[in-house]
Amino acid sequence: MSEIADFLRARYAEQRALALAASPGPWQPNDEHDEVIAVDGITVAEGFALSGQQLRATVDHIAAHDPAAVLADLDAKLAIVDWHGAREATGFDADGWEHTGNACQTCLAGDDWPCRTLRLLARPFAKHPDHKGEEWAP
């Protein structure tokens, strides 16, 4: 496909490995909102170093980004990356994968490449050594 799509797939694979290695989700705050508890009852994180509202907000933030949520987010982002590699007409790529249906018109036309959507998806990884900097800036 494209260098930026391959870059995104590699970053998402790294994030997926981290999520799969973590305590199982869903995570949730305990009743006091000072700890994050995994589905198996194990404490994932403690907010003891914080106080008051910041503690509760931090614990809630960690719980909202449990492995199950991260995996769902990665699946959605991968679907976007794959959609950008689709073709209008039915056909097969070099790996034998069939592509049908709609695709990003910007990508199909070859205008403004890489597509702004893919450049936006790459933005969180701007400090990664393989990121192309200004070339991939949105």
Rank of each mutant, 00 (worst) to 15 (best):
D66I: 04
E134A: 06
A63Y: 04
L71V: 14
L121R: 05
P114S: 00
A86L: 11
A126L: 03
E3T: 12
K77F: 02
T117F: 00
A69G: 09
D130A: 15
G91E: 13
E3A: 13
P26L: 12
R9L: 13
A19E: 13
D31N: 10
I62R: 03
L108T: 00
S23Y: 10
A126V: 11
L78M: 14
Q105K: 06
A103H: 09
H84F: 08
D112L: 05
D40Y: 07
P124V: 02
I80G: 00
R16T: 14
D40I: 06
P124T: 02
G101F: 06
R123K: 12
A45V: 08
G52E: 04
K127C: 01
G133K: 14
A21Y: 04
E32P: 00
A19H: 09
K127D: 15
R116D: 11
A126W: 08
L120G: 05
V81A: 10
A94C: 04
Q53T: 12
G41A: 09
W83F: 15
Q105H: 05
E134T: 02
L55Y: 00
C115A: 07
D66P: 05
T90E: 14
Y12C: 08
D93C: 09
P138T: 07
T58E: 01
L20M: 15
L78S: 08
D95C: 04
Q105N: 05
R11L: 09
P138M: 05
W27G: 04
F48C: 08
A38D: 08
R119P: 10
G25V: 11
A5D: 12
G96E: 11
L71T: 06
D93K: 07
L50M: 15
S2K: 04
Q105G: 06
A57P: 00
S23L: 15
A68D: 15
V70D: 03
C104N: 03
R9N: 15
A69M: 12
I42H: 13
R11W: 08
T43E: 04
E134W: 01
D34R: 04
D40T: 13
S23M: 10
A19F: 07
A89W: 01
G25A: 07
I80S: 10
S23E: 15
R9E: 12
R16H: 02
A49N: 08
V39H: 09
A10D: 06
N30I: 02
E135P: 00
A94Y: 04
T100I: 10
F125Y: 15
H128F: 08
L74S: 03
T43D: 00
I4T: 03
